[in-house]
Design a protein around this nucleic acid. Structure first.
Lengths: 197, 197
DNA sequence: GCGACCAATACGGTCGTACATATTTATCGC
DNA sequence: GCGATAAATATGTACGACCGTATTGGTCGC
């Protein structure tokens, strides 16, 4: 066929640039410079910047899937513990970036969903997939009698996912983990309470 | 002084353009064109685009203050009713825009907080002020025995505010009010429950 | 006539994208 | 084995448009 592609390299470094600067503000030249490739390489691998945006979204969410597998689907933990493990793991990753960059999915939701119908649709699909492991966890918790009656697991899952995005938003503004900690505190003492007995 | 300034006009129309396109993507020429003024007028009234951004933030939040006064501080409603009135009023405004544009504060939090320290600081101040009427409402509800013990009013207020931003984010992606409705459903049945008796 | 505002134009730089050409490599006929 | 071929990738450069900002002079009201 042909020689080894630098596409992966562009995606990896480009994702990083977009996380730092935002999708609109990150120029094609910023991306290729970070990847150490000439400008033309971008055109070769991506039909447009929008197409590139779709690919980094997929790449980012693939990583989220791994995180979900390691936490929400952990085999030997009770459901609510798995939930807590997920939020803790994300918090640790956000800490690595000094509470600066937040979540690519959330960032592009507010920045790019309006500009591009393709990106908006992809984001919607991502959120739909994202909800499932949460809903499963919550359903299991209720089944085991560890979660009081209340909203349906699907509703609760979407609520947690959305609210978590809101907490990350606040974290970005305050550059401080307090909003994340407040989230887990309120959620695990107020929202996900055990049934009365 | 001098002849009537077009600054207000630029701010009003510019705010609209920024809400539609995002702060980065909205060019100075877009703004002046929407206001029907020549380009130079922008330079005359704003030392930079960043300064303009700070002013539209203030302008936007002044409107939020009015909404708060009309709902969260309504004299003749019980506290939790006032909370619901606030979320309903915001939902009505988002509906006017076809669930497209979300909240300027949230948008700039994810898009511009990283680019400009001045904007980040202003956003933090806005959120701090925003929390107060919520915290008051919640404290009153607890005082009147209409809200179960749990998280401190300050924590709960920030949690609600953040989570509401998250719900708006999801609304923007799905272009549908379902996330907003889910928010109020979960919050008013699960988070803000009455004390046991 | 002075200060505040309006108006027009221009600057240097960057944007996303296009394109023509060169280089590398897997595959296949032989 | 081996050279030809075709496909995929790499590269360098250029386009036209737009970016935020600056500058200059005109115009109005006090």
């Amino acid at each position: 066929m042909a020689r080894p592609s630098k596409k992966e390299h562009i995606l990896r470094e480009g994702l990083e640039v977009v996380r730092r600067k935002g999708f609109t503000a990150a120029g094609v030249r910023d991306i290729t410079a970070a990847a150490g490739v000439p400008q033309g390489s971008f055109t070769n691998h991506f039909t447009s910047k929008e197409a590139f945006g779709l690919e980094i979204l997929d790449r980012y969410f693939a990583d989220v899937r791994d995180l979900i597998a390691a936490t929400l689907r952990a085999p030997d933990l009770p459901p609510l513990r798995r939930l807590a493990a997920y939020f803790d793991a994300v918090t640790a990753r956000l800490a690595e970036r000094g509470w600066h960059h937040g979540c690519l999915v959330g960032n592009m939701s507010l920045e790019s969903a309006e500009h591009s119908e393709a990106i908006r649709a992809r984001l919607a699909a991502i959120f739909a997939e994202w909800r499932e492991p949460f809903a499963e966890c919550l359903a299991q918790a209720r089944e085991r009698g560890e979660l009081a009656d209340g909203a349906a697991p699907d509703d609760l899952a979407d609520f947690l996912l959305s609210s978590w995005q809101g907490a990350i938003l606040r974290m970005k503004v305050e550059r401080d983990p307090a909003p994340l900690e407040r989230f887990t505190r309120v959620v695990f003492t107020g929202v996900l309470r055990p049934p009365p007995r």
